[in-house]
Design a protein around this nucleic acid. Structure first.
Length: 319
DNA sequence: CGCCTTTGACCAGCGC
DNA sequence: GCGCTGGTCAAAGGCG
């Protein structure tokens, strides 16, 4: 997919007011000047003439306002594109979901409970076929597994690793080949905090090998690692607080959907997990789209990802 | 040296 | 009880 058509990173936000325009030929002198003249907070403090300082501040304020406006516009476009993308993903998932894999009659309880806990709207994923009766049977395990969510991450075609970059630090503690899927499933524990109970399972989708399915169990009991830790490669928000995360990897933007927070309450079909009706699906899509775009955390994450990407680009252009 | 991945062994749940 | 299966453990080795 051509992400460049969706995310217009060419927008000149002029983050550094004195920076030479990126597409203009940069000679060494101007480059040096631009670097030297980069206005810092200290600059404003040391400049003596108050009038000049006020003027500079006003100018700066205008510039920031303009940037803010552009970013807002960009964010709007991104949201729209994201909605379109997600709709396509939903379509894709529903199409593939119909190809039910040899539905294992012997599906283990724990596995099935993962699916129906709070993944009611797991967008037609084939594994949502488990029944609710199981949830009533499940004992103490359920109390421990507070939150289970699932993410889909598209990877490079040639990428055979099972790495899902979500900003957290993970330690792999096992790998297994499961019966339903020839691709190995990797087991990860959150290693950022020693006491963090979160676990993650990553396995390639049986339908599309380029899609990694990451299943998260539990909630992080620590703040999200600083963006610096993942700067440039991945930025996202803590699962459980935001229904989705957007990351801008070097290969291009990746939208990770955490559908845990989808409108499970309003679809009121908890007694009937299968929602293959297109109208229902469409309704769910719209509901999730609106909740996502209204979510300030999501938009903030998006803005952070965009600005981070731009900052990175600005640097790579310069150096 | 510490952290990580790999991988075979082991354990527990489930169906028969 | 047994076999199958998914999940976890832990020793060994690699890497920075």
């Amino acid at each position: 997919m051509d992400y460049s058509s969706l995310v217009d990173t060419s927008l000149d936000l002029n983050i550094n007011p004195l920076r030479v325009k990126s597409d203009a030929p940069v000679d060494a002198e101007r480059f040096a000047m631009a670097n030297k003249r980069k206005p810092t907070f200290m600059d404003f403090q040391t400049k003596p003439p108050a009038k000049e300082e006020t003027g500079a501040l006003v100018e700066e304020l205008n510039r920031v306002s303009e940037e803010n406006r552009k970013l807002t516009e960009m964010l709007t476009v991104m949201c729209e594109n994201y909605n379109a993308l997600r709709s396509q993903l939903m379509d894709y998932m529903s199409k593939n979901g119909e190809k039910e894999p040899l539905a294992s009659s012997k599906k283990r309880k724990s596995e099935s409970s993962n699916n129906n806990d709070n993944n009611i709207a797991t967008n037609g994923n084939s594994e949502t076929s488990s029944t609710d009766e199981e949830s009533s049977k499940k004992p103490r395990e359920e109390v421990i597994k507070a939150k289970i969510s699932r993410s889909y991450v598209r990877t490079e075609a040639g990428d055979t690793g099972l790495i899902v970059k979500d900003g957290y630090q993970w330690r792999k503690y096992g790998q297994k080949v499961t019966r339903d899927n020839p691709s190995p499933r990797a087991y990860f524990k959150c290693s950022f905090a020693p006491s963090c109970p979160v676990k993650k399972k990553v396995q390639r989708s049986i339908d599309d090998q380029s899609v990694l399915v990451a299943t998260y169990e539990g909630e992080h009991n620590h703040p999200h690692p600083s963006v610096e830790a993942t700067s440039g490669s991945s930025r996202s928000l803590a699962l459980g607080s935001v229904p989705c995360s957007a990351s801008l990897a070097s290969s291009g933007p990746t939208i990770t959907l955490d559908l845990t927070k989808s409108k499970s309450s309003n679809d009121a079909k908890s007694s009937k997990p299968k929602s293959d009706a297109p109208e229902v699906r469409q309704f769910l899509v719209e509901q999730m789209a609106s909740s996502l775009t209204k979510d300030p955390n999501f938009t903030a994450a998006l803005a952070a990802a965009i600005s981070g990407r731009m900052f990175q680009q600005n640097h790579s252009e310069k150096w």
